[in-house]
Design a protein around this nucleic acid. Structure first.
Lengths: 118, 118
DNA sequence: CAGAATCCTTATGGATACTG
DNA sequence: CAGTATCCATAAGGATTCTG
């Protein structure tokens, strides 16, 4: 997944697509969802998302940072490099939208499964 | 794009993804956005989205119907077949979510372009 | 630890021609 | 009009190995 720094003006006839491009993809949504609960390191994110490869995680994190949604800080602890990703101030404005997606999706999953999830 | 009739239970650790899967894709979002303004026929949608092929439009409409978001009705007017797509009652519940995506996206596009869009 | 580099598989979307 | 049927192009994602 690559970033969309400046959305194509043609996309303005469907502004919802602008947002979709930024947050969609198999892993991007999960990264954002996870970071809603607070910042996390690269390894935290990998462990939180079994199956993702370092390459793909890097690509998505880079895109999210390039789009201004995430902030990244490096720190050298001893000899080990630690990176931390969290929502930027601007990225925070997206959280209500993610919440809306989440609560609709939860309801939909319950409905589709016949309310088998308590 | 194919439909996701029953979301994978594993996806419940990121319910936002459930919604994303249903509405994302280059054309699915546009179809939904267009239909917010009312029902439309197959040809209306094609004309409204220059560049889409009949095959792709069909696939996406089928998926949206299979997912319960859209309703479809056929009518025979004379010898010509008319099909009409519109939001189902259930699909209507998604509109506030689409609106949230749209208004955030509009704001983002303006911001990214330096507020060049009045 | 946090990636970069490389190569590979598959999903998504597209072009064209044809049909009920 | 509203699609189907084929075949094709590209991009998203994945596996593996290596490095600062």
């Amino acid at each position: 997944m690559v970033s969309t720094p400046v959305p194509d003006p043609k996309m303005l006839d469907c502004p919802a697509l602008v947002t979709i491009q930024l947050v969609s993809g198999k892993w991007k949504t999960r990264v954002l969802w996870h970071l809603r609960q607070g910042g996390a390191g690269f390894g935290d994110l990998r462990r939180a998302m079994p199956g993702i490869s370092a390459k793909v995680l890097t690509e998505h994190l880079d895109a999210l940072v390039a789009d201004g949604l995430l902030a990244r800080t490096e720190s050298l602890e001893g000899k080990v490099l630690h990176t931390r990703y969290r929502f930027s101030d601007y990225g925070f404005t997206l959280i209500p939208v993610l919440d809306a997606l989440g609560s609709w999706g939860l309801n939909h999953a319950e409905r589709a499964a016949g309310h088998r999830f308590p």
